[in-house]
Structure formats: C-alpha cells, structure tokens
Computed example of a mutant assay.
Amino acid sequence: MIDHLDHLVLTTSHEEACIRFYVDVMGMSLESFGAGRKAFRFGNQKINLHVKGHEFEPKAQLPTPGSLDLCFIASVPLDEVVARLGEKGVAILEGPVMRTGATSRIRSVYVRDPDQNLIEISELSP
C-alpha cells in the first residue's frame, strides 16, 4: 500500500540554528512555500519545518523538538561526510560503525542537530 516517504515534519525551538545545520552542514536546500512555510529539500524528499509554538495545523499531538531519530544515506563517501562535519565543528557522537539499513548494511556516523535530534548519516555497504 505504501510506496515511499514524501516528507516529514521537524519541530524546532531554534529556527536559525536549525536552518544553518540542515543547509550548511547537511547540504540540503531551503525552500519556502505556502503562507511563510519552510522546508529542507534533498533528493525527492523534504523535511517541513515547524517552529515550536507556531506549528501549522494539523500537527502531531505532541510536537516536540529533539524527539526525532533520523537516518540519511549520504550522496558522497562517508569519509567525506566525516571531513565536512569536522570542518563545520559538528561533533560525532559515535562512528563510523556498521548498522543494518532498510535495504542493506550501512556504515554510519551519529551527530545531533541544534534541537538534539539524533541524526545518523550513512553510506551503503557492499
């Protein structure tokens, strides 16, 4: 019945820091749509941004900054990801480590965004 994920919603308490992280560190594009809404676009997906206390309706029952645990597959080798994170001053919490992804084994590093969401960045492993 379900084919793929179109978008998800991230709730932030730190809009400017959140935008810097997802655009400058993660390399996503910032887009505006609708009545002042913002989203981060990457590939064929996007992350819609809600600011805590100013969410758009309808919304999750308890939209909470820092409650997400997301895994992204990188478009570049993981060693390049690690180098970029270092250049941007983003601390790696764990990794590189081997994990099991949706379609194959993955090699991953873990970081936190400004709202303390856990962000896993991975490369597919042969």
Rank of each mutant, 00 (worst) to 15 (best):
16 E>R: 12
17 A>N: 15
18 C>N: 10
18 C>P: 01
18 C>H: 01
19 I>Y: 04
19 I>P: 03
21 F>K: 00
23 V>C: 10
24 D>T: 06
25 V>R: 01
25 V>E: 01
26 M>R: 01
26 M>C: 13
26 M>P: 04
28 M>R: 04
30 L>N: 11
30 L>T: 12
31 E>F: 04
31 E>T: 05
31 E>K: 09
32 S>E: 15
35 A>C: 04
35 A>T: 04
37 R>I: 07
37 R>N: 10
40 F>E: 10
41 R>G: 04
42 F>K: 01
42 F>G: 00
44 N>V: 02
45 Q>E: 14
46 K>P: 02
48 N>M: 14
48 N>L: 11
48 N>V: 04
49 L>A: 12
51 V>L: 14
51 V>M: 01
52 K>E: 14
52 K>H: 12
52 K>C: 07
53 G>T: 12
54 H>D: 10
54 H>I: 05
54 H>Y: 11
55 E>F: 10
56 F>C: 07
56 F>R: 12
60 A>G: 07
60 A>T: 05
62 L>A: 07
62 L>R: 08
63 P>S: 09
63 P>I: 03
64 T>F: 03
65 P>T: 13
65 P>I: 09
67 S>Q: 05
67 S>N: 12
68 L>A: 09
71 C>H: 04
72 F>M: 08
73 I>L: 14
75 S>K: 15
75 S>L: 11
75 S>W: 08
75 S>Q: 15
76 V>W: 08
77 P>R: 09
77 P>W: 08
77 P>D: 11
79 D>F: 00
79 D>A: 00
80 E>A: 09
80 E>M: 14
81 V>W: 03
82 V>M: 14
82 V>G: 08
85 L>S: 01
85 L>M: 02
86 G>F: 03
86 G>R: 06
89 G>Y: 07
90 V>N: 02
90 V>F: 06
92 I>A: 11
93 L>T: 09
93 L>W: 07
96 P>I: 04
96 P>E: 02
96 P>S: 05
97 V>E: 13
97 V>Y: 15
97 V>H: 14
98 M>A: 14
98 M>G: 08
100 T>S: 12
101 G>E: 09
101 G>M: 06
102 A>L: 15
102 A>R: 14
103 T>P: 01
103 T>D: 01
103 T>G: 05
104 S>W: 02
105 R>E: 15
106 I>P: 09
107 R>N: 00
108 S>L: 07
108 S>Q: 06
108 S>R: 03
111 V>A: 01
112 R>W: 07
112 R>G: 06
113 D>V: 02
114 P>A: 13
114 P>R: 10
114 P>Q: 13
115 D>T: 04
115 D>L: 05
116 Q>W: 08
117 N>I: 11
117 N>W: 11
117 N>Q: 13
117 N>V: 13
119 I>Q: 04
120 E>K: 09
120 E>P: 06
120 E>V: 09
120 E>H: 09
121 I>N: 00
122 S>V: 08
122 S>T: 13
